[in-house]
Design a protein around this nucleic acid. Structure first.
Lengths: 119, 119
DNA sequence: GGCATTGTCAACCATTTGGTTGAGTAACTT
DNA sequence: AAGTTACTCAACCAAATGGTTGACAATGCC
């Protein structure tokens, strides 16, 4: 329960049913009953799933029977985390590519085109 | 075990230790032992975490003692999923904002001019 | 107020998860 | 070839997860 925000968000989206709920809520708000209808599980189970999404801040409701709505801001938290390491990793690969290219050049000077083979 | 890819990826990142492993691997490849060193848990526990990351396709290794490396492509899978619903949701809110603005205009024309506190 | 509908809470169950320790295997070193 | 080092596998454990059913609470309608 005392998990950090990001852990709760990722954990919430690790379940296909919950991802489907999010997907559906992205196109329209809906009540618990409406949301539960298509699935082959009890209403209580869906209610639990919604609680997980709510605890993760992905979803909110004004009152008990009010329609559930998606909180789009939380997505930013994820994309920021992801992009950070994605970019970092990509940069590394670029550097690696550069390094490999360099090594290629210096170990096989034949390839290094016309000028400066004179080392 | 027969979970879909996206579920495995999100589940893998739902753990703070595993997110930290990913963060560290984004700046440099490292062996299991190196990765395990900073944490207060057994090497076996970290080995298990790495297996989870590997099963999710977030990480790979050429052989047993080879350095672990981050597979940056998997991030695309996540960002695509996220962006899709994020954008969808944002569009809805824009439409809602427009609708509310419209209603505001037609139902309370008093407010639509600059300053008429004269009531 | 009374009743039906809608949703949540509680208790329970099976499975998964994250950790442990101990034993085994694979790979370098000499 | 033998020994050390690095890692994984297996068995086990406690806690969390996703599901169930049954009882309860809150809202909307007569």
């Amino acid at each position: 329960m005392s998990e950090d925000r990001l852990s709760r968000v990722f954990a919430a989206l690790a379940d296909p049913t919950r991802r489907d709920l999010v997907a559906r809520l992205a196109s329209a708000d809906a009540t618990v009953g409406e949301l539960a209808a298509p699935y082959d599980v009890s209403l209580q189970a869906v209610s639990k799933h919604l609680k997980v999404l709510e605890d993760a801040g992905l979803v909110s409701r004004e009152s008990r029977r009010a329609p559930v709505r998606l909180e789009a801001e939380v997505f930013d938290l994820m994309t920021k985390w992801i992009e950070r390491y994605q970019q970092q990793a990509e940069k590394r690969y670029q550097r690696l590519d550069a390094l490999l290219a360099e090594m290629q050049e210096s170990t096989s000077p034949r390839e290094s085109s016309r000028e400066e083979d004179a080392s």
